[in-house]
């Protein structure tokens, strides 16, 4: 696996798709797998460039997954100097800021032709409730087909342009997204009727 110069890739991407705001996200862990945050509106064009550019050829999207980042309160302590009774004093002030949450789709790309990778690309939704759409990568890499269905199922990201966006693991009548950080599992007996119950009832009626 040859080392990839992520800054050079970023430059090439910016030249190929002018006007796209790509952000390099540093990864402080020893793995040093830095990632590129793509703007949703240019993501398909950028992904196609990564796949087709002869020096990059990321033809294999190995892993696609979601990450939930809920609203977080960031507490900062700020020291300010104020005049109290004519004497300058240093006052410590606690300021709380709310970082709005978002959902993230992460893709790990490799090249089967040039045998390099991984390149990590990410996309973020505007928030966690109303604007949860991201473009689907299924037109670029078929391997994201089931994986994006899984992200939709477990995280609730709606992939526009996906040909068959249905729940993958949970059943169709299920309404929540279990991998979200604020997901509360139902109580032991909350009255939810599983589809299995209907089958049992139907069998009972046959026996009568």
């Amino acid at each position: 696996m040859s080392a990839l110069d992520i800054n050079a890739i970023l430059q090439a991407m910016q030249t190929a798709v002018p006007g796209a705001q790509i952000t390099l996200l540093e990864n402080p862990s020893p793995s040093a797998q830095h990632s590129l945050l793509l703007p949703a509106e240019h993501a398909i064009a950028l992904a196609k460039f990564l796949r087709d550019e002869p020096t990059l050829r990321f033809d294999f999207c190995s892993n696609a997954t979601g990450v939930d980042w809920p609203d977080t309160e960031i507490t900062e302590k700020i020291k300010t100097k104020t005049l109290v009774d004519g004497v300058e004093k240093e006052v410590e002030e606690t300021r709380k800021t709310l970082r709005p949450g978002y959902l993230e789709a992460v893709y790990h790309l490799f090249s089967m032709e040039l045998k390099h990778g991984p390149l990590v690309i990410r996309m973020r939704t505007a928030d966690r409730v109303a604007n949860v759409s991201l473009p689907s990568m299924t037109a670029v890499w078929r391997s994201t087909d089931f994986q994006e269905r899984e992200i939709f199922d477990l995280f609730g990201i709606v992939f526009t342009g996906h040909h068959d966006l249905r729940r993958l693991l949970m059943w169709e009548e299920f309404t929540d997204h279990p991998m979200r950080k604020d997901y509360a599992p139902p109580a032991e007996d909350d009255g939810t009727e599983l589809p299995v119950v209907e089958v049992a009832a139907a069998e009972g009626s046959v026996a009568e």
Partner: peptide
Amino acid sequence: KPKPGEAYGR
């Protein structure tokens, strides 16, 4: 407790 960051291993 690993330091903050991420990794993909295969």
